[in-house]
Amino acid sequence: MNIFRLTGDLSHLAAIIILLLKIWKTRSCAGISGKSQILFALVFTTRYLDLLTSFISLYNTTMKVIYIGCAYATVYLIYMKFKATYDGNHDSFRMEFLVVPVGGLACLVNHDFSFLEILWTFSIYLESVAILPQLFMISKTGEAETITTHYLFFLGLYRALYLFNWIWRFYFEGFFDMIAIVAGMVQTILYCDFFYLYVTKGQGISL
């Protein structure tokens, strides 16, 4: 564990909590892409199946349970509890255009052709593009609530911090995982446009 990975995980946790609280407190998921949240739930489910097979640390297990719990709670709030406030017309990105190519790539490019490893690779690739429906929705509506921009900021920051974590681990531990690094770079690059607007605008954003 290093400072970049710890702050990265905490930034990720902050993003997840911010979104969940925003929907819960305002009792509305206006401006939120339910499809991105479904993809994130899928990312956590396919990545954290190792909860059933291996124990790494209390921190690791606790965070995985929290991530999965919050992801499904968010999907539940969007599609069940506050379904009336879900803006389905603007949340029109075709998820299959992401899941199918990512699934194929995970079968072609991976560290080991085993069930859990393929699923892990799928989740890494999927996470790098899972935010696209949300960014697409904001570009269609032309605006985003301030709280949503904070959610996106911390979500984008988390993987950027992981890039520093991988530099740290390569330098100090000789560890590197090309699949995670390349996907992490793609994921962070997708936020660059948003980061620029977030920093220059400060308040509500129009992509």
Binding site: D9, D50, S54, M63, Y67, H111, W120, Y162, D177, I179
Partner: peptide, 10 residues
């Protein structure tokens, strides 16, 4: 390279 069994990152 990715040598230990499984992945230790979230």
């Amino acid at each position: 390279n990715q040598d230990e069994v499984g992945h230790d990152e979230l």
